[in-house]
């Protein structure tokens, strides 16, 4: 008996938690959605099929930039729809696309200097330092700061500070000076990567080793292998431990080329 009523209670509790609903407003229309959903899933729950403004669903691609507000606050809030859990009474609109100018360039021909950025995006000097871009970034990047670094020709600084940018464009939507911050950011990162960062010597060595056919023997052996055997050795392969020492090497050195 007691057992029974216990499980009843449990059942009731469970259904209550799964059904906790919150009201949200998608482009002004009210929907009740489960409280645990992200904005992206709430859209789908409410019946929208997302064909734009949705990509990786993992907070990386930047396709799902979203703005929202609450009735009792003047603030414009921002988030990535796939990463932000709904809150009661949020008024939501996704910004799946916003036009942005993009300079065309051959990175090989550019120099990593301020002048390069200024020539490709002369409007950068219109930035009035209002800070709205920083307030609008769902990745918590100090956008204004990387733009100021670019203005003063600090390419490495701009590249580093804009590193987490997912190109969602929310900063661009709200900039009073019509900057396309994320395209300026990626230009500085490309300039940095191509012209400032140290070349990765071990990569060059590895490519050289490929060219010298040092791996060919091993590859040939694998190519001839029977599929089940291949699966077996693949599953049994050694992988570098996540926190392994710098000089880690596999036990089986057959495929290892050092020097």
């Amino acid at each position: 008996m007691s057992n029974n009523s216990d499980s009843k209670k449990k059942n009731k509790k469970q259904s209550e938690t799964t059904l906790e609903m919150v009201p949200i407003f998608i482009m002004g229309k009210k929907h009740d959605v489960p409280a645990t959903l992200t904005i992206q899933k709430a859209f789908e729950y409410a019946g929208y099929q997302l064909v734009r403004g949705c990509g990786c669903r993992g907070g990386i691609c930047g396709a799902c930039g979203t703005v929202y507000r609450f009735p009792d606050s003047y603030r414009i809030e921002v988030g990535l729809a796939c990463q932000t859990v709904v809150k009661p009474n949020m008024y939501i609109s996704q910004i799946p696309f916003f036009p942005a100018n993009k300079a065309v360039y051959d990175i090989e021909e550019l120099e990593p200097t301020g002048s390069t950025v200024w020539a490709l995006y002369p409007e950068i000097f219109k930035c009035v330092g209002c800070g709205t871009c920083t307030r609008s970034c769902p990745m918590d990047i100090d956008v204004m700061e990387y733009i100021s670094r670019a203005i003063r020709g600090d390419i490495a600084g701009a590249a580093e500070l804009s590193f987490d940018c997912v190109m969602c464009g929310l900063c661009t939507v709200r900039c009073p000076s019509e900057e396309v911050q994320y395209n300026i950011g990626i230009l500085t990162r490309r300039l940095y990567g191509r012209h400032i960062a140290k070349r990765a010597k071990h990569l060059e060595d590895a490519v050289e080793n490929v060219k010298q056919k040092k791996f060919d023997k091993g590859v040939k052996k694998l190519k001839k292998m029977d599929i089940d055997k291949l699966k077996e050795i693949y599953s049994a392969r050694e992988t570098e431990p996540q926190f392994g020492p710098e000089e880690w090497e596999p036990e089986n050195k057959d495929y290892l080329i050092t020097e």
Partner: peptide, 16 residues
């Protein structure tokens, strides 16, 4: 040389 250590205000931007 005049005995000052200069501090640039953090996150300074263009003054306009």
């Amino acid at each position: 040389l005049l005995g000052y250590e200069l501090i640039e205000p953090e996150n300074w931007t263009c003054c306009g």
